[in-house]
């Protein structure tokens, strides 16, 4: 099973976390890709997609995820058979829009028929936890759940 870690970032925090997750899953075959470079036509059934994204501005996706959002809306791909999981990064100082980025990615993927594994986990920049302390257990759990389904 291949694991593709996709990230949407504005300040680089989600990019760093994506790289940390890849390093943490080093006994798997992983890749790290900016969502700005992800073509919706490239989703592959045998790959697990771990998507890490922040929220920016007024509850929007971060800059690097916006081209992906536009491409998904334009292409309307059929992603049935695609498995993904979402890790959102937010800041509860902005409670009305807290973690809208992660929600939006979940909507886009589910709307295209993809299957979400695990629960969408969110990190709060104003909280006490380090992002990786939440993200590593999340990634391990999702990978364990995916292995029977995606084992070639």
């Amino acid at each position: 099973m291949q694991i593709a870690i996709l990230y949407g970032t504005e300040t680089g925090n989600a990019e760093m976390l994506a790289e940390d997750i890849a390093a943490h899953l080093d006994d798997h075959d992983t890749s790290v890709t900016n969502l700005s470079d992800m073509d919706p036509a490239d989703f592959t059934a045998g790959t697990l997609y771990l998507i890490v994204t922040s929220t920016y501005g007024d509850g929007e996706l971060p800059a690097s995820a916006k081209p992906f959002e536009e491409a998904m809306q334009a292409a309307g791909p059929d992603l049935s058979g695609i498995h993904f999981a979402v890790f959102g990064m937010g800041d509860s100082e902005y409670e009305e829009t807290f973690n809208f980025g992660g929600k939006r990615i979940e909507e886009l993927m589910k709307g295209a028929g993809a299957t979400m594994l695990g629960a969408r986990v969110t990190h709060d920049a104003s909280g006490a936890d380090m992002a990786e302390d939440l993200a590593f257990p999340w990634a391990e759990a999702v990978v364990a759940e995916a292995e029977p389904a995606l084992a070639a």
Partner: peptide, 15 residues
């Protein structure tokens, strides 16, 4: 000083 979440980018630079 009350926007500590915004200051979290420092973690990238510590690296």
């Amino acid at each position: 000083p009350d926007h500590q979440g915004t200051k979290a980018v420092i973690r990238q630079f510590e690296r």
